[in-house]
Simulated scan of single mutants.
Amino acid sequence: MMKSIATAKGLLIDLDGTLYHGHVRIEGADRFIGYLRSNGIPYLYVTNNSSATPEEVASRLVGMGIPAEAEDVCTSAQAAAGHIAETSPGASVFVIGESGLCTALLDAGLHLTEKEPDYVVQGIDRQLTYERAARAVTFIRGGAGSILTNPDLLLPTAGGFMPGAGSIGAMLQAASGVKPTLIGKPSDILMNYALGRLGTLADETWVIGDNVATDIAAGIAAGCGTMLLLTGLTNADNMEHYIEAAGCKPDSICQSLDQLIAELGRRS
């Protein structure tokens, strides 16, 4: 029997490629979130982005006309901080990352240090120096836990692409010989953290996104229903290619956000 998103009791929603492209709102994104709000359907915005705080993410959404508040946002930085705080409360952390990651770690009661950390936590860091990378490798080789916020190899910019958190992580892994614990999509750690925030069970929650290898794979790993939107990376022309490459397939597919609203409208 095919799953139907109409039965969903909660939604975990990707951002880039799902609700916007860069700084441009995708058609229907405002109506989609308005529908969820007016019908009392719980949701969270779930992003692999570790550089921005939830407040900054929400401000960006509002600037594009998409309703958002900081508490609606769940980032890989928050999930990384939560993962460490649950495993080792009050642990010390050496950070390769930006303000969003540092803020999340501090908010979770962890301590930032430059000496002998319990963990090295790494996200995107556009000010990374060779010296800091070398120190991170030394700490990891010395026994510090290695945490990678998200595996994205490329970061889209106005001028093309730049190395993402995953590219930095690949360098640290190669130099240290240690594979990091991955937090963001396609890992289920971020999804399970988001489910805990949302307060719904995995089998009654759907993940919505445009990337089969990250959004859909993470939803499947966490035991959620999955909806692929053909609004971003994946479209009707390349869909079969990406599904085959990812080795997994979504429970359902929608061409647009307005079609998704219609599917949700089938609720009894």
Rank of each mutant, 00 (worst) to 15 (best):
K185T: 10
W206S: 14
S4C: 08
V121C: 06
L15C: 14
S256Q: 04
T181I: 15
S76Q: 14
L154S: 15
Q173N: 12
L264P: 03
A6Q: 14
G199M: 10
Y35R: 03
G34W: 01
E69W: 05
R141G: 11
V24H: 09
S59N: 08
L110P: 01
R197W: 06
F94K: 08
I124H: 04
S176M: 08
L101A: 00
G219W: 06
A175W: 11
D215S: 11
K9R: 12
C248H: 09
D203F: 05
A8K: 05
K115Q: 13
E71M: 08
L172F: 11
L153C: 10
I66C: 07
Y43W: 01
I124C: 08
V57K: 01
S176R: 07
T226A: 10
L61S: 02
V73T: 07
A144P: 07
A236S: 13
R31A: 03
G169R: 14
E86W: 08
P54F: 02
L112V: 03
A144N: 11
N150S: 13
Q122D: 06
L182Y: 03
Q78E: 14
F139H: 15
A8C: 14
G63E: 14
A91C: 09
T7C: 08
R197Y: 04
M239K: 14
T181A: 12
G159Q: 11
E244G: 12
L61E: 00
S256H: 05
A52G: 05
S51L: 01
D258C: 04
P180G: 08
K185W: 03
I168D: 03
Y119G: 05
N48I: 01
F139D: 11
Y20S: 01
L182I: 10
V207G: 12
A175H: 07
A104I: 02
A29W: 00
L260T: 04
A6V: 11
A108L: 00
I96L: 07
E240N: 11
A236T: 08
D107T: 04
M171I: 14
